[in-house]
């Protein structure tokens, strides 16, 4: 057991002292994607993932965000911010988890992407909000409507379009894109400079697959084409996570090792991954809970779902009401 690694070193103290916690700069980007790395990663035998015991934690409801959102993936975390909806169900508000600062966003959106400190809603009337600014910046010049929720890492964004996958740098008007068959609704994942997404092109052969595209060059390539529906891909720095009928898969992009946690998941919400920690929904005997690779969990009576993780914080909804669970001790490092 070791203390949590980058970039939250010092955040737990900050939480206890109720001062702002700023993430450290990004870790170096994962190695570029190529046929060589893909061949090496071609369906490696996964290691079984064992979960550590749950660390002590506290929990509190986030009552300001209790309104149901039109996009059920909200409310969610955007770094140290929790982003949610008003009475109309549109994404229009954010609250800072440490300071309690509340921001009402201008130009509310039906759906959006949340990244660490950022909210992004495509469309001419929207753009991205650098929280706590309530005003969106630079509307993305959308030539086609996204077919699912975009993804944002604070510097870049990626979107699924009809027959294409697209990525761009925030503030730039130039968009990179490639032909693809992204499956609607499932958002892409971003571990810059690589974009990952759920692809339908070989559905008749292998079900839904995970594809990847290194935006610095080269064509999109299949990454996971196992039988079954690989879906709900998510990424953070050098970790890639997806779900399928077997359970939760973690892929370390730095050394192409894989772990599998066998469980019944992927039935509703996607996983939330932050650095080395991933959280997911799982169901057993009609009960839905949330678990994380560092042992943090949301269990008990009722339906705990829609996990969103950032640093020590895990946001879930318990029977529809958003709750914030905060890990109180140093976390176990995840694989």
């Amino acid at each position: 057991m070791t203390a949590v690694n980058t970039p939250y070193r010092g955040c737990f103290t900050a939480v206890l002292l109720s001062v702002a916690c700023t993430p450290a700069p990004d870790v170096p980007a994962p190695p570029p994607l190529s046929w060589t790395t893909l061949a090496a990663a071609a369906d490696p035998v996964p290691m079984e993932l064992e979960l550590p015991p749950a660390p002590p934690s506290s929990r509190r409801p986030l009552s300001w965000l209790h309104h149901a959102c039109r996009d059920r993936r909200f409310p969610t975390l955007a770094g140290p911010w929790a982003v949610g909806c008003g009475p109309g169900g549109r994404v229009d508000r954010a609250i800072h988890l440490e300071t309690g600062q509340r921001v009402e966003l201008g130009a509310a959106a039906d759906s959006a992407a949340a990244g660490p400190g950022w909210v992004f809603a495509p469309g001419a009337e929207h753009g991205w909000w650098a929280l706590p600014s309530p005003t969106p910046r630079s509307p993305w010049p959308a030539h086609a409507a996204p077919i699912g929720q975009p993804v944002i890492d604070g510097r870049h964004a990626a979107l699924s379009l009809e027959g294409r996958i697209a990525a761009f740098e925030l503030g730039e008007s130039h968009t990179l894109s490639r032909d693809a068959d992204p499956t609607p609704w499932f958002p892409p994942a971003l571990a810059w400079p690589t974009v990952y997404w759920v692809d339908s092109r070989d559905q008749a052969v292998s079900g839904l697959d995970i594809w990847a595209w290194d935006t610095t060059g080269g064509p999109p390539l299949p990454l996971v084409t196992r039988a079954g529906d690989q879906r709900h891909v998510a990424a953070s720095r050098d970790r890639l996570v997806w779900l399928d009928e077997q359970g939760l898969w973690l892929h370390d992009l730095s050394d192409d090792t894989r772990w599998l946690h066998r469980t019944d998941t992927g039935f509703r919400a996607g996983p939330s991954v932050d650095g080395s920690v991933a959280c997911w929904e799982e169901r057993k005997a009609g009960d839905v809970d949330v678990r994380c690779t560092d042992g943090l969990e949301a269990t008990g009576a009722g339906d705990q779902g829609w996990p969103s993780r950032w640093g020590p914080w895990l946001m879930v909804r318990v029977d529809g009401t958003p709750w914030l669970i905060t890990a109180q001790a140093a976390q176990v490092e995840s694989p």
Partner: peptide, 15 residues
């Protein structure tokens, strides 16, 4: 809703 949560797999949702 409960039955789908218990044994269905959500593949798409909008509105």
């Amino acid at each position: 809703e409960e039955a789908l949560l218990e044994s269905g797999v959500l593949m798409f949702e909008q509105g």
